[in-house]
Design a protein around this nucleic acid. Structure first.
Lengths: 161, 161
DNA sequence: TATTGTTATACTCTATAACTATA
DNA sequence: TATAGTTATAGAGTATAACAATA
């Protein structure tokens, strides 16, 4: 006896479902490096363009500056990141990776690749390439900034279609 | 001057990024129906198989039973759902859609279709079909339950790598 | 004693706003 | 006065555990 709910899950729901699953799996993996996903994303943003101010990083990631302070604090205490004063304008810090931070990025990269492989192990190489192309197209059409997770903007609410 | 971060975003990151984006868009759309995504998902589960107990629904969605109480409360107060006592075992309720609930599902279905169309408007019909096939394959390989959002299990942490 | 449903409590995380210092 | 960074406060949302009713 079926009700009259939506007939079958659309692609949007599949994307949300898989995206959330992938996020959870990634969180589990980086937890083994004692890292949260937001910290991993921040490390990535710093590695991408070292020396930015916290304000610049906040704008790039689309998150309130106040949230960055705590994130940077955590990474700085672990010696992965350092704040350097700018002699010309003593209000801003330039955020850089330390040597330990650079070394750590290798581990993080390895974890990310393992995560990718495990997630897609149902597809062969051709299919993975197809999927990647299609996803990239959709992301571009939606004007998503490459490498920036939308969750920095509004972490709340998970979809459920 | 580039650092040594992960070279480019893998497919797993693309999935997380698009999945989160899709979830946020969906949340915005259902908000116009005064609904949260978890409420929408619960309505869907009830419509799919009417009359289940709250415990059964909780197991199906993979969420603590305590969370369902509040969700059902909200939907019941709006007259979309009703709890029916089971005369044989007065401990459990059977959760059903009301007539208003059935009517409401039509609106929800329309919103979901619009959401789907808007998200994929960068792809033509063939490409959409391809994408759907690939996503379904991945979801099956990962043993995700059709139509159930993983976020019921652990809403925390959004991915970021 | 086990199970369904419920309520109460505590915790995590986030954003808003107020504050300090530099400009 | 405006901006970078910080701290403090309050709010939303969740899970854990205790509780009542029924079996």
């Amino acid at each position: 006896m079926r009700g009259d709910g939506p007939p079958a899950a659309g692609s949007a729901f599949l994307l949300t479902q898989l995206g959330t699953y992938a996020a959870q799996e990634f969180a589990t993996r980086v937890a083994e490096l004692d890292l949260t996903p937001p910290q991993a994303g921040l490390l990535r943003a710093i590695a991408l363009e070292p020396g930015r101010s916290q304000q610049a990083l906040a704008r790039h990631l689309g998150t309130p500056a106040t949230r960055l302070v705590a994130l940077v604090d955590g990474l700085e205490q672990r010696g992965l990141v350092e704040r350097r004063r700018n002699p010309d304008d003593r209000r801003l810090y330039a955020v850089h990776l330390t040597d330990a931070g650079h070394a750590f990025m290798k581990k993080l990269g390895r974890v990310a690749r393992e995560h990718d492989d495990a997630l897609l192990d149902g597809l062969d190489a051709d299919e993975r390439a197809q999927l990647r192309t299609l996803l990239t197209r959709v992301a571009e059409a939606r004007k998503l900034v490459a490498g920036v997770h939308p969750g920095y903007r509004t972490l709340g609410e998970a979809d459920t279609c």
